[in-house]
Amino acid sequence: MISELGTECLAVARWGGKAARLAELALHGHPVPPALCLTTDDHAGAATERAIGLWLSSTRPRRVILRTSLASEDTEEHARAGATRSEAGVEPVADRVLDRVRALLTHYRDVAGSVLLQEEAHCAFGGVAFVDGAETTIEVADTTSGVTAGQAPLTRVTVRDGSLRATRLRGPVPVLELVRKLLPVLGRVHDHFGWAADVEWGYVAGGVLVLQVRPITRELRP
Score class of each variant (00 low, 15 high):
Ala83Glu: 15
Leu36Trp: 08
Asp42Arg: 01
Arg67Ala: 04
Leu98His: 06
Cys123Lys: 01
Gly206Thr: 05
Val93Thr: 10
Leu22Cys: 05
Leu117Met: 15
His122Asp: 12
Leu25Asn: 03
Arg188Asn: 14
Gly53Ser: 02
Ile2Ala: 07
Glu219Asp: 10
Gly150Ser: 14
Cys37Asn: 05
Ala20Thr: 03
Glu76Cys: 13
Leu36Ser: 10
Leu104Glu: 00
Ala121Gly: 09
Leu183Ser: 11
Thr137Met: 11
His28Thr: 12
Leu10Val: 03
Leu98Ile: 08
Arg102Thr: 09
Thr155Gly: 07
Gly16Ala: 01
Ala11Thr: 13
Glu200His: 05
Glu91Thr: 15
Ala149Ser: 12
Thr106Cys: 13
Arg85Gln: 15
Pro33His: 05
Pro153Tyr: 05
Leu209Tyr: 00
Leu183Gly: 10
His43Asp: 10
Gln212Asn: 09
His107Glu: 11
Val111Ser: 07
Arg60Cys: 10
Ser69Asn: 15
Val111Glu: 05
Ala13Met: 13
Gly29Ala: 11
Ala46Gly: 14
Arg85Ser: 15
Ile138Glu: 04
Pro222Gln: 13
Val173Ala: 04
Val199Thr: 08
Ala88Glu: 08
Ala94Ile: 15
Val159Leu: 04
Val128Lys: 02
Ala26Phe: 07
Val159Asn: 01
His192Ile: 14
Arg168Pro: 04
Glu135Val: 05
Val90Glu: 09
Ala81Asp: 10
Ala23Gln: 00
Leu22His: 00
Val140Lys: 02
Ile216Arg: 12
Leu5Ser: 02
Leu169Phe: 10
Ala26Met: 10
His107Ser: 11
Ser58Lys: 09
Gly89Val: 12
Gly207Trp: 06
Ala20Phe: 03
Thr158Met: 03
Ser86Ala: 14
Ser57Ile: 12
Phe130Ala: 05
Leu66Gly: 03
Gly82Phe: 13
Ala71Trp: 01
Thr48Trp: 02
Glu24Asn: 06
Glu24Met: 06
Ala152Arg: 15
Gly127Asp: 00
Pro34Val: 13
Ala47Thr: 15
Ala44Asn: 14
Arg14Tyr: 04
Ser72Val: 14
Pro172Asp: 09
Pro184Glu: 05
Gly16Ile: 01
Gln118Pro: 07
Val128Asn: 02
Gln151Met: 11
Val173Asn: 00
Leu176Ser: 09
Arg109Tyr: 11
Ala152Val: 11
Thr68Pro: 08
Val189Gln: 00
Gly113Phe: 01
Ala46Glu: 15
Thr148Gly: 07
Leu186Phe: 08
Arg14Lys: 10
Leu66Glu: 02
Val189Met: 02
Ala134Pro: 01
Ser145Asn: 08
Thr84Gly: 11
Gly16Tyr: 01
Leu104Met: 09
His28Ser: 14
Thr75Met: 12
Leu220Asn: 09
Arg170Met: 12
Leu56Phe: 09
Val185Arg: 04
Val173Ser: 02
Gly53Pro: 02
Pro33Leu: 07
Lys181Ala: 11
Leu105Asp: 03
Glu4Leu: 13
Thr84Gln: 12
Glu8Trp: 04
Thr143His: 06
Arg168Glu: 07
Ala103Asp: 08
Gly194Met: 10
Pro31Ile: 05
Leu154Arg: 06
Arg170Asp: 11
Val140Gly: 01
Asp95Val: 14
Arg21Val: 01
Glu139Thr: 06
Gln212Leu: 06
His28Pro: 10
Tyr108Met: 10
Ser163His: 07
Thr7Cys: 08
Ala13Asn: 13
Trp55Cys: 03
Leu38Thr: 04
Val159Glu: 03
Ser114Thr: 02
Tyr108Glu: 06
Leu183Tyr: 11
Leu211Gly: 00
